[in-house]
Structures are given as C-alpha cells and as structure tokens.
C-alpha cells in the first residue's frame, strides 16, 4: 500500500523526502565538500572545473553556476547543503532564500520585519477542495 504523503499538496514547497534525496545525492555531497577552506578556494578559482569532479547532471551543474536555488531544490538539493554555496559566496541565508521568492532581498527582509509571510492561502495547493 502506498504511503501517505500529505506534504505533497503544500504550494511553493518541496519537502526533502527519499525521492528528492536520491536525485540530489551527488549535488548535496558536492556542497558538503565546501566545508573545507581548500575546497572553497578550488571552487572559487574555477567553478566549472571543480564541479566536473562530481558526478552531477549537466542541469544540476548549470543550476549551481547560475546560483539558481529554486532549480537546485527541484533537482534534489537540500537547503542546508546548498547554504554551503551561499556561505562560500559570502552572502546571508536570507539573501539566498529570498532568490526563491517573488521578492528581492531588501523586500524579503522588509516582509520578514513586518511579521513574515502569512500562512493564509498557502496551506494547500487547492485551498477550496481542502477546506473543512
């Protein structure tokens, strides 16, 4: 019998489950390598050559080069792994996170300071069918 996956109907949200973990294994392991200063230096010196050492897909490689966090998440990246890339770039967590939203970083921080994004209307992909 199939397992219940109630987290699948939350909009704008990719939960890091087994399927994502399988897709992103090598991408995430690449990110882990950035916990060492020598590897961060090698990555910064030639990102493309450094990425070629990892058996990731060309789509995953391009998403890293583009710092396309939404794409990296879609392709199996986990945010705590991907934040090693933003740390290497010297940008804040909020700056990296904001790239996945409709806001630029300043607008995003302004939203947070006003109490963050409301859960109203973003609990279910189809709110109408799921009420009650």
């Amino acid at each position: 019998m199939a397992l219940d996956k109630p987290y699948k109907n939350i909009p704008g949200t990719t939960v890091f489950d087994g399927a994502q973990a399988r897709k992103g294994f090598q991408l995430n392991q690449f990110c882990m390598s950035l916990m060492k200063e020598e590897n961060r230096q090698a990555f910064k010196a030639d990102e493309s050559a450094y990425l070629d050492k990892w058996p990731i897909s060309s789509e995953q490689k391009q998403a890293v080069l583009d710092r396309n966090y939404s794409k990296m998440i879609e392709l199996g990246g986990n945010i705590y792994y991907l934040l090693k890339i933003s740390a290497t770039d010297g940008i804040s967590v909020a700056a990296a996170v904001s790239t996945m939203t409709e806001h630029g970083v300043d607008e995003y921080m302004a939203m947070m300071k006003q109490g963050g994004r409301s859960p109203e209307g973003v609990r279910f992909i189809d709110e109408k069918n799921s009420k009650g």
Binding site: I10, P11, G12, T13, T14, Y69, S70, I73, I79, L83, V93, V97, S98, M100, T101, E102, H103, Y108, M111, M112, G115, G116, R117, S118, P119, V122
Partner: peptide
C-alpha cells in the same frame, strides 16, 4: 519555531 527556507513560500511565519 516558524521558518521556511525554501521555495516560493519561504518566509512563512505563523505567530
């Protein structure tokens, strides 16, 4: 407590 660091829904806070 409340936080979401991924996707279009990032930034959600439920006081």
């Amino acid at each position: 407590m409340s936080h979401q660091l991924i996707g279009e829904r990032a930034g959600i806070i439920n006081r």
